[in-house]
């Protein structure tokens, strides 16, 4: 258990990359990017975790009770917003691409070769 979460983080990164590289559809690709990003959530979460720690909310819990790290959680909140916004922007681009090129398959787009 002491290493398993880290391994999951690495797996998510690699599987996300795999999805991106093999994708035949930009919408699919953007979703894979979101999966890749979730690797960073798992990484940060497991770094800040403490066995037996409470959540860093001291409402009804005395200050000084062992708690997990609040900093990584704040970082993850930022990370989640980044995810949402990046996905939104890339989806907007994919939408427009489909409108003009009538395809979302990277294999069928040849305009930027060489």
């Amino acid at each position: 258990m002491s290493f398993f979460p880290y391994a999951v983080a690495a797996w998510l990164f690699v599987i996300g990359l795999y999805g991106i590289v093999t994708s035949r559809n930009f919408v699919h690709l953007v979703i894979c990017l979101a999966v890749l990003q979730s690797s960073t959530y798992v990484l940060l979460l497991s770094i800040g975790y403490r066995v037996g720690g409470t959540a860093p909310v001291f409402a009804g819990v005395r200050v000084g009770t062992p708690a997990v790290d609040p900093v990584v959680q704040a970082l993850m909140l930022t990370d989640i917003v980044v995810e949402a916004t990046v996905v939104a922007l890339l989806l907007a681009l994919a939408l427009q691409l489909h409108k003009r090129a009538n395809t979302l398959d990277p294999d069928k787009l040849k305009a930027l070769e060489g």
């Binding site: 990164f13 975790y49 900093v71």
Partner: peptide
């Protein structure tokens, strides 16, 4: 390479601080 790097982290569940601990206090 990634796993090699992750191996250097403290075991999961043993966050060492200090940043988060100071703030919790």
């Amino acid at each position: 390479v990634y796993l090699w790097g992750l191996k250097g982290l403290p075991a999961v569940g043993h966050y060492r601080g200090p940043y988060g601990d100071v703030l919790n206090q």
